[in-house]
Amino acid sequence: MSQIIEHAGLEFGAVGEGFGPSDVEVKFMSQHYRQPKAGYWVALVDGQVAGCGGIACLDPANGSCELRKLFVSAHYRGRGIGKALALHCLQFATEQAYQQCYLGTLSSMKSAIHLYTSLGFKRLVEPFCGSIHDGCDVWMLKSLAMNADKNFISA
């Protein structure tokens, strides 16, 4: 996993302090994501690690989580793996009763931004308070709150 994250960091210029691939947790993922209401998943293709991504609490006071370190190996991109991982992470976040999901990314990650937009993320004008990834230049937020209309049927 750490190789995929670190290679993507190099590929897109996300290197150094303020970028997810440089976080200390990259070398200790299983320890970091054992926290309550957090999780990290790996996508396998024919037994090979193809991608990874996770959810961690960002601000418990406002019910926000962060979609973290969602990366797909260059060899496996374009196969829907990133979307499947993102959907799995968002489903987990909803099950954990988070109200909103934040992410930071780079403007150079055009395919990722397109994916996030298609999943209902909206761009923010500045980073979310509490995020440690200040090297990102694109910030997005998605509401996870249930739509009240879904609880009713037409008569």
Score class of each variant (00 low, 15 high):
13 G>Y: 01
123 R>V: 00
4 I>Q: 01
35 Q>D: 09
10 L>F: 04
23 D>V: 00
94 T>C: 03
110 K>F: 05
57 C>N: 13
28 F>W: 12
11 E>F: 01
95 E>R: 14
11 E>G: 00
34 R>S: 15
71 F>V: 02
54 G>I: 03
19 F>H: 15
45 V>Q: 15
109 M>K: 03
94 T>H: 13
25 E>M: 12
79 R>A: 06
12 F>Q: 01
30 S>L: 06
32 H>E: 11
75 H>M: 05
70 L>C: 11
115 L>D: 08
43 A>P: 05
17 E>I: 06
53 G>L: 07
117 T>A: 15
38 A>C: 15
11 E>C: 00
66 E>A: 14
115 L>R: 03
87 L>T: 13
122 K>C: 11
86 A>I: 04
16 G>D: 07
85 L>G: 05
85 L>P: 02
107 S>Y: 00
113 I>K: 07
29 M>C: 09
26 V>E: 03
9 G>W: 02
13 G>D: 04
111 S>T: 09
80 G>N: 09
20 G>W: 02
25 E>W: 12
80 G>F: 06
30 S>W: 08
73 S>P: 01
57 C>P: 10
34 R>W: 02
104 G>K: 04
17 E>D: 13
47 G>S: 10
58 L>F: 09
54 G>F: 04
104 G>I: 04
47 G>R: 10
119 L>Y: 09
22 S>R: 10
85 L>F: 06
94 T>L: 08
32 H>P: 00
25 E>H: 13
118 S>C: 02
106 L>G: 05
26 V>Q: 01
80 G>V: 09
41 W>R: 05
38 A>Y: 04
53 G>D: 10
116 Y>F: 15
115 L>C: 06
122 K>R: 14
53 G>W: 03
6 E>K: 11
98 Y>D: 00
27 K>T: 11
44 L>N: 13
106 L>V: 03
64 S>T: 15
12 F>N: 01
20 G>Y: 04
96 Q>T: 05
92 F>S: 02
39 G>Y: 01
70 L>D: 07
102 Y>S: 04
9 G>C: 03
46 D>M: 07
119 L>C: 13
14 A>N: 01
65 C>L: 12
122 K>N: 12
78 G>Y: 11
73 S>K: 05
70 L>S: 05
94 T>E: 10
108 S>I: 07
64 S>W: 10
14 A>K: 02
70 L>N: 05
97 A>Q: 15
95 E>W: 03
116 Y>D: 08
63 G>P: 07
49 V>N: 08
49 V>D: 12
95 E>L: 12
22 S>T: 12
66 E>I: 10
73 S>H: 14
49 V>P: 06
7 H>M: 00
